[in-house]
Design a protein around this nucleic acid. Sequence first.
DNA 1: ATATTCCTCCCATTGAATGGGAGGGGCACG
DNA 2: CGTGCCCCTCCCATTCAATGGGAGGAATAT
Lengths: 263, 263
Amino acid sequence: MANSRSGDSLLSRLVTILDAFDSHRSSMTISALSRRVGIPLATTHRLVVQLLDERLLERDADGGVRLGIRLWELASRGSRTTDLREIALPFMEDVHAVVQQHTTLSLLDSENVLYIERLTTRGSAVNITQIAGRLPIHACSSGLVLLAYSPPEFQDDVLGRELVRYTEHTVTEPAALRRLLAGIRQLGHASVPGIIVPNTTGIAVPVFERGDRVIAALNVIVPFGEEDLRATVPALKTAAHGISRALGSDRPRGGTSRMPRAV
Amino acid sequence: MANSRSGDSLLSRLVTILDAFDSHRSSMTISALSRRVGIPLATTHRLVVQLLDERLLERDADGGVRLGIRLWELASRGSRTTDLREIALPFMEDVHAVVQQHTTLSLLDSENVLYIERLTTRGSAVNITQIAGRLPIHACSSGLVLLAYSPPEFQDDVLGRELVRYTEHTVTEPAALRRLLAGIRQLGHASVPGIIVPNTTGIAVPVFERGDRVIAALNVIVPFGEEDLRATVPALKTAAHGISRALGSDRPRGGTSRMPRAV
DNA sequence: ATATTCCTCCCATTGAATGGGAGGGGCACG
DNA sequence: CGTGCCCCTCCCATTCAATGGGAGGAATAT
């Protein structure tokens, strides 16, 4: 597939390079990058120069390289993520205003939970989610909701794997997990204590597209002892319903504006 | 630079392909894509298959292709845009709540104004800005603010060009533009009527990084007749100041938290 | 003064990129 | 039901860009 001795294609190497940057490592020298991604320096150098040419990478003030704004532009302009995020944002604000805890929006991507928006609350619970960050599907309330409403084959697939146990509360045993998912479907929400971070409870509800298919999860993260399910779950469900409605009304197909709407 | 007869490198072709998608054209058949980007069908097909492999593109329900979530993830994870957006969002909400008009955050990129966040208001003025969309620097209030606080050489460069006239209010004449910019610097904000969309006024203020350098513009878009500069400008300036402070306090360098902060 | 680490460029080798063309499937129109 | 049209996919001989070890040089640390 490529000239490279490692057998990687040019494109896969480009992706590897872009993938090497994250929020903790947002800038690197070319040499460091080369070591990190395991591509020979001369080749890394050449690829980086090309990426700089296309402005997918930028030079840093200290001579390092970082992701370019152009890359963000390309990725965001025609992306469904951007649309979903923008539609959901006002409803997330509502939840955030009422519940006053970290609020996130996430979806399933390649068997992980990918967070596409996050509203943080100062001084509240520890929040390990990051925008464009991922968490394992079985170890966060959002993941469990998304899994609970996934097709059975996918559920079986996930349950059949060896699941990592992060805390004493992480449910990894298939039968227990199945019961947990059934409970989530019955209640319409997930509320799980510290399955990835101790002393933190995640509460999540599904966001439906056109009434049936689940496309996202809406979640809040609260410190132990501050859970108030009676207030939180209705807030989340109301917002999730609002997002569903807004998703439908912005597209021609699907029940449009059958519902009256205040300004 | 490449095997292609057109002389384009592989990477530049990949960028061209990704660039072909935008919010209006978020899904295309491979043939349509091939025609649009001017790359022979067989080559486009091969590149698309590779991009699908890397999940930078996704298959649509109707067989077309669209941008993949993975691309958004790669671009957003280590991007400064994501940080800036997240830091600025609460302050934008404040403005939005008070002014109740479209509110945007933008920055200068390659001689254009690139919008990185937008809060919309239903039923308010026409809003042609799009998240990850661009506008010419001389034809929007945000652009004029960003230009007013740019280095003189860059200003001269922009003023030396042939500037497009979009409406009767668009200022394209260098001397007039210079006066406009001087006024913006003096007042600390830009307020310009319908220079790209008629019957719409843009009001924008600069967002500073570490007190001196301007990194973004904060803007609201109001319909003619509803301008209330006395209320709007202070709201914008307050929010812009808050963003500057939050930018500084999240980074070790720069005056951190000299200012008391309420929860 | 010496070692280390970085960036950059060179260039002979090699095999991946190229794209015209053919085959096949699906849909609409007459 | 046939015909035309458009799309996707694969093939394959040709061609030239990708590869990466190595060297030179600059900058910084020891």
